[in-house]
Amino acid sequence: MRHTVFTEVPDATEVPDDVTDVLLWRMAVRVTADHRPDPRDPGRCANLRCAHEEAYPCPPLRDAQRARQAATRPPRFTPGRARVPAVTTLAQRFAGWFRPTRPAPPLPRRQPMAALRLAG
């Protein structure tokens, strides 16, 4: 059995800084490079493994895109202090929102345990 060496895979120096899983990212890059749209029919994948697929992007390409996203760190928040509105403003805006609009019906009186034993 002959193994194919992929030469289009980026070197370790070309891996972006936000990649957390280099092996997964490289695999996703290889699959993405192998599953390009067919130049004669852009709605289909040019890879022979996807000859039976109806539309492009094919399932291997969609999986590779998800793997590439999973291999990278999510974007960081902008550094700095969060702007929080004044607490008094929020307290005034939501004052009384949890109160019922109509009075609750009275709860039925519970019988003492001794009365229940005598009734049964």
Results as ranks from 00 to 15, higher is better:
2 R>I: 14
5 V>E: 15
5 V>P: 14
8 E>I: 12
8 E>L: 14
8 E>G: 10
9 V>E: 13
16 P>V: 00
16 P>T: 04
16 P>H: 00
17 D>Q: 11
19 V>K: 00
19 V>W: 10
22 V>P: 01
23 L>K: 14
24 L>P: 04
25 W>L: 06
26 R>F: 07
26 R>Q: 05
28 A>W: 02
28 A>N: 02
29 V>N: 03
35 H>E: 00
39 P>S: 06
40 R>T: 15
41 D>R: 06
43 G>L: 08
43 G>V: 01
49 R>L: 12
50 C>Q: 03
51 A>P: 03
51 A>I: 01
51 A>F: 11
55 A>P: 07
56 Y>Q: 10
56 Y>L: 11
56 Y>M: 11
57 P>S: 01
57 P>T: 00
58 C>G: 06
58 C>A: 03
64 A>F: 01
64 A>D: 02
65 Q>G: 14
67 A>S: 13
68 R>H: 13
70 A>N: 11
70 A>M: 12
73 R>H: 12
74 P>H: 06
76 R>Q: 15
77 F>I: 09
77 F>E: 10
80 G>I: 03
81 R>W: 10
83 R>G: 08
86 A>M: 15
87 V>G: 13
88 T>E: 12
89 T>W: 08
90 L>N: 06
95 A>C: 06
96 G>F: 08
99 R>D: 12
99 R>W: 10
100 P>N: 09
101 T>V: 13
102 R>I: 11
105 P>M: 06
106 P>S: 05
106 P>K: 00
108 P>K: 07
108 P>E: 10
108 P>H: 04
112 P>C: 03
113 M>R: 15
115 A>M: 06
115 A>E: 14
118 L>Y: 09
120 G>S: 09
